[in-house]
Structure formats: C-alpha cells, structure tokens
C-alpha cells in the first residue's frame, strides 16, 4: 500500500494507492494551513480507504518546485511516517505530477506553478519515440521568458488564474492550449502512480536525501520577533541611522 502526500503550493492532496487503483484521495485548497490540515487529512484518507499505516510500505511525496515551506511540511511528514513504518520513501517532482495525466494526449505539455510575485516554475513534457518524458530543466522566470521556450502548440496545465491564462494567450496566440480547469488540478493519485513505478525501478535512498527541488536561492529575511538576516554593516546591524562619512 502506498501513501502519497503533496503540499507543494496553496493546493494540497493526499491519496492511498494499492498498486492498481487509488482507494481514496482528498485534494483541497489549503492556502497556508498545510501544517494544521495535513495530519487530520491523512487519517481521514486512510480510514476512507479502509487501511491503516501498518499496511503502508511505500510513501511518495511531491518535491516541487513550489513553496519551500509547503514542500518541507509534506517531506518532513513523509520522512517521519516512512521511518515509523519502515516504508520506502520516494520523491517525485510536482511539475511531473501535473503533466502526467495528460501524457495520453500526446500533445506537448507545459506544467506551470506560481513562484512568487511575478515568476512561475515550469517544465516541458513531450512524447518522443513513444517515451513521454520531461524535455526541459525545471525553469523559473516571468511568463514572457517562459513563452520563449514554447515552440509549437503546447498544452498548459497547473495553477493558472485568468490573468496568467490571458497573458499566455497574448504571448503565444493559438499555440497556447489549455486543459479544462478541473483537469489542471494536482491530485495525489497521480503522484501515487508515479511514485509506485519509480520505486519499482530505483533503490531506496536515505530519507534525509529526499528534499525539495530548490530552483531558487534562499532569500534573506527576518521573522520570529528579531531580525535574523545577516546584517552587512555594524551601523545597519545596530539599527542606527547611517552616519555621514
């Protein structure tokens, strides 16, 4: 039995998969409440599928790219569950999960996720010699830049609001195709299928090696009552007004 966890973005999803069918699945708009909602959801999905963690021997987790904090919620949980059940753990890219259900269309597919204010994460998938595979690196940038990577007709999937869709239409014209909104949503059932297959092919790696795909560098910022950033100068560090030199 495989448990699949995905908290990569504002959307989250949990599924239980027996190797052939998805027994239960829950996908919801968690916004920032992953930390609170993930565990109650796991328990609910397990009980709906008529399973307990005792029979789970595989765990699949979405590794992004996406929200760093969100990704770590599912990955840390998956590590703990895998350690506690002695299950094998596998990480699958969130963009791979998004593109996978569209493989049978044989249309070049681009999965997209928001990456902060003006940027998006993206990757391009295509069938070549009967093999459906990711054909680009994991990219991050503004839509204008991503559009330059799109040659031929491409199906866009993932999290896109109306504005993003309009921008892509304006940039690409008829070359931009859009999947139905409901089929763009990321579901852990697909993550489960990919994870199951991956575990049949690869050997289990150390749990600590499963980590988010960090396409971006960490931004230096403060939180938690005190400023935690590395202050570059003593004047700044001590919070004093700049001296005229």
């Amino acid at each position: 039995m495989l448990l699949a966890l995905d908290t990569s973005t504002d959307w989250a999803s949990v599924a239980v998969f027996d190797g052939r069918v998805v027994l239960a699945e829950e996908t919801w708009h968690a916004q920032r409440r992953h930390g609170e909602e993930l565990f109650p959801t796991i328990e609910r999905v397990l009980s709906k599928s008529g399973t307990t963690l005792a029979s789970v021997d595989k765990v699949a987790v979405a590794t992004g790219p996406g929200s760093f904090t969100g990704l770590r919620v599912a990955i840390a949980s998956a590590q703990g569950i895998a350690r506690g059940t002695d299950a094998a753990l596998v990480g699958i890219s969130t963009l791979d999960v998004l593109a996978y259900p569209h493989a049978s269309t044989k249309v070049r597919t681009c999965s997209i996720l928001p990456a902060g204010k003006h940027d998006h994460y993206a990757a391009i998938y295509q069938e070549r010699n009967r093999v459906w595979k990711r054909r680009s690196p994991f990219m991050v940038g503004p839509l204008e830049e991503l559009a330059r990577q799109i040659g031929t007709h491409t199906l866009f999937v993932g999290e896109m609001d109306e504005e993003v869709e309009a921008t892509l239409r304006a940039l690409l014209g008829p070359r931009a195709l859009f999947a139905a909104p409901a089929s763009r949503v990321r579901r852990a059932g697909y993550l489960a299928e990919l994870g199951w297959r991956e575990l049949e092919r690869t050997t289990q790696s150390a749990l600590g090696e499963i980590e988010p795909i960090y396409v971006r560098q960490p931004r230096i910022g403060g939180s938690f009552q005190q400023p935690f950033a590395p202050p570059p100068q003593d004047d700044v560090a001590l919070g004093l007004p700049k001296r005229a030199s």
Partner: peptide, 22 residues
C-alpha cells in the same frame, strides 16, 4: 513554538509522522 516557523514545521511534522506511524 516559539521559533522560526519554517524550522519548527520540519521538526513538528517529522515527529507527528513518526508518532502516527508508530
């Protein structure tokens, strides 16, 4: 808590996973 939220989430979720599984 209290602490850095992103750091706390790692430990708390790992521990909750461990607890649920065990």
């Amino acid at each position: 808590g209290p602490g850095l939220i992103g750091a706390l989430l790692v430990g708390a979720n790992y521990a909750r996973g461990l607890a649920l599984a065990a």
